[in-house]
Design a protein around this nucleic acid. Sequence first.
DNA 1: AATCTGACGGGCA
DNA 2: GTGCCCGCCAGAT
Length: 117
Amino acid sequence: MPSKKTKKLTQNRKYSFFDDVFEVVKLIPKGRVTSYGAIAAYLGTRGSARMVGWAMNVTSSDVPAHRVVNSQGLLTGKHHFKPPSAMEKRLKAEGVGVKNDKVMKFEEFFWDPRREL
DNA sequence: AATCTGACGGGCA
DNA sequence: GTGCCCGCCAGAT
C-alpha cells in the first residue's frame, strides 16, 4: 500500500506513476537489480528516470529500493538509507556482489522489466 | 508565487 | 573517451 505521501498523490492527482513504480520494484526478484531508467522506460516515461528515484524517497518502506541502482550499476541511492551501508549490505545478503558502491557483473544481475515482465 | 534541487539518462560538443 | 547540457516532474524553500 502506498505511503501517506503517495496516497495523497494518487488520490489528488491520478498519478499512477508512483504506484506503478512501486509495483514494478516489488516485482524485482530477490538477488536481482534494475535501474531507474529501465523502470521509467517500462512505464513509458523514459525521460522521467529521476522521478523513479523520487518515488523511492517517498516510499522506502514496503519497496526493496536497494534493488534499484542507476544505469551504471552504481549504488547512487545508498546515501538515503538509514545506515548508508544498508543498501550494499542487503544486496550482498541477496547474493549480489557489490564493490566500491557498484554492482559486480551488473548486466548479469540486471532485471529489465520490459524484457522480464 | 517563483525558483532550485534531486536516488537519472541520453545526446551532443 | 570525457565532459557538459538538457529534459523529466514533484517537492521543498
